[in-house]
Design a protein around this nucleic acid. Structure first.
Lengths: 342, 342
DNA sequence: TTGAAAGCGCTAACAG
DNA sequence: CTGTTAGCGCTTTCAA
């Protein structure tokens, strides 16, 4: 078919058919309002196909057409939590004419956060767990770009879907507190980071312990370089246990940490759940496949994606829509790793 | 700061400063060749910052500037194999001025494959495991867009990084054949699909068995709807074993299937590796955390990403570069799940 | 039913 | 050192 060295433009089609560029544009855009003779229509369509015409989306957007681009800003592709998120958003958007432009914030330095605006003509923007994006996102919103924030700490000045991780973690911790003496929190973040970050997990854990008048125990899972890392769980855990003895229950920052902890405990010959109860967080698929199966806090991936997209789409269609918001609660999923008599 | 309802353009800056748009363009683009007075330079920069100017990338691209956009076409964000791939590509591209535009082919129907060309002005394109993209990719290449293909079945008409999965699977199968009587292949694809698809796993398995004069055994892991699904492993496996007895070794299509199989075997009270040896494929991180730890075929994620990007970048910089290609071999990682006396 | 022309925001050649 | 100008490919208004 097409073997031209360059891209085919509407002008090429018009020239070949000896008609005007506007006519070509009309039929290619299926403009109902303009009346085009059936024969012209067909000639244009045929030529476009033959010549391998593909619209230049940058030009379309420049000329004022919608870009059908949705920017999704998320931390990265890893760990599995994010791939679940991305998959669900993709599932939402795939059947629509819209396309996802994923921006990963993983490697961003502090200034980069201003870069939320990629400069591409997006029709809308979804920011997931936008801890530091407040200003940038509000800015975009002010410039007329529809923005939806979602996750456990969404911006509330824009349409948002919040996930009430706090209450679920509180619930999980309370469950453990009622069945165990020493309930520790295992996290890849130092205590300073945990306290400075808007992430609700540590505060929820701490609140649940305080409520029961129990002392906090925080196990920081970092490697020698201070990087949060489940691969270091064995070293971290054995050192901790050696120094302070073994807690009866562990609430883990996320499922990856929980899985790393499970492996470390196995190596230390500590039984789960008999000696130590274990609960993770996020509800990644893997948790179901371990032995013992891992209790976790199931993040509502699909609902978050569905609602976020619903909100964004509505706002794109009707910018005057009043502020939309919803709150979802992750579900505590009790499985083998936390099974114990009360 | 900026609270305008609309986007700031270069014209806005020029107007405010009473200078020409070209001057603004020059300083914002740091054009060395044009001499701009230091004072003008600073005024422009200051105004741009204050007004919150962000370049319109669509317009830049239209006007002939490089877009700094790299399209990465990959099957999806799931399973973990893909998130490893995406992460590594992202790691490569993050420190450069380029930006990734990820296109997921997961939901594509047959016609959509023609859609490889998203219509955005990409500077280059990486297609991963491009089974059905040959024509579309070659097309783009012909139109002057640099294309690199990578994965276990890359196009060879363009720059490519191939991964020799065939030989690794052959090696793994041979390892099993030498230590077990019945070596079965567990796959989420029906035999017809396996045979029609360019994926080298089934052929490699079959070749290794034939070489040893052993009969093939293929266990198809699909649910009632015929969808490939590790969650169905228990049902599939117990039915298979009931009918034909239990193989001594299982070579799994990928690590997800291997993990599902491991869980199913556990439920069936069949020991790994004592009763059944198990080897997966892809080398996702999870394999190290199971008990027994899972043998797998380690895909060279980082090297594939690094080389692909190296090839693409070189071709972008110098389109006349001769065809580039490299072949990488995944490493057979023997762990507990396949440990057995010979 | 079709065509001419303006303009989206920007780059880059050229003129001053 | 700075301004004028011609497009890039497309949409859209207005004429014909």
């Amino acid at each position: 078919m097409s073997q031209g060295q360059q891209r085919i433009s509407m002008a090429d089609i018009a020239r070949k058919l000896n008609i005007s560029r506007a006519t070509v544009s009309y039929v290619l855009n299926e403009r109902e309002s303009e009346l085009i003779s059936e024969s012209t229509r067909e000639r244009v369509l045929a030529a476009a196909r033959e010549m391998g015409y593909r619209p230049n989306r940058a030009a379309q957007a420049l000329a004022g057409k919608r870009s059908n681009l949705i920017e999704l800003c998320v931390y990265g592709f890893h760990p599995a939590f994010y791939s679940h998120i991305l998959s669900e958003f993709e599932t939402q958007i795939a059947p629509t004419p819209y396309q996802l432009h994923i921006v990963s914030a993983r490697h961003w330095t502090s200034e980069d956060w201003e870069t939320l605006d990629s400069g591409w003509p997006v029709d809308g923007l979804i920011v997931f767990d936008a801890a530091l994006l407040d200003r940038a996102a509000a800015d975009l919103q002010n410039r007329g770009v529809p923005v939806v924030a979602s996750g456990a700490y969404p911006l509330t000045s824009v349409d948002h879907v919040s996930v009430d991780t706090y209450s679920s973690v509180f619930e999980a911790t309370t469950y453990l507190v009622e069945r165990a003496q020493r309930v520790a929190y295992v996290t890849p973040w130092t205590l300073e980071i945990s306290k400075a970050n808007p992430d609700p997990r540590y505060p929820a854990y701490a609140a649940a312990l305080h409520k029961a008048w129990r002392p906090e125990e925080v196990i920081v899972a970092t490697d020698q370089n201070g990087v949060g890392n489940r691969a270091a769980m064995y070293d971290v855990l054995s050192a901790y246990i050696k120094e302070k003895g073994c807690p009866d229950a562990l609430l883990c920052f996320n499922d990856e940490i929980a899985i790393g902890t499970l492996a470390a405990l196995r190596r230390l010959q500590i039984r789960v759940p008999e000696d130590v109860m274990l609960i993770g967080c996020d509800g990644i698929e893997e948790t179901a496949y371990h032995s013992p199966s891992l209790s976790t806090i199931q993040f509502p991936y699909a609902d978050v994606a569905r609602l976020s997209w619903e909100f964004l789409r509505r706002r794109i269609e009707d910018p005057a829509t009043p502020l939309q918001s919803a709150t979802l609660k992750p579900q505590l999923l009790l499985r083998e790793s936390s099974a114990r008599e009360e």
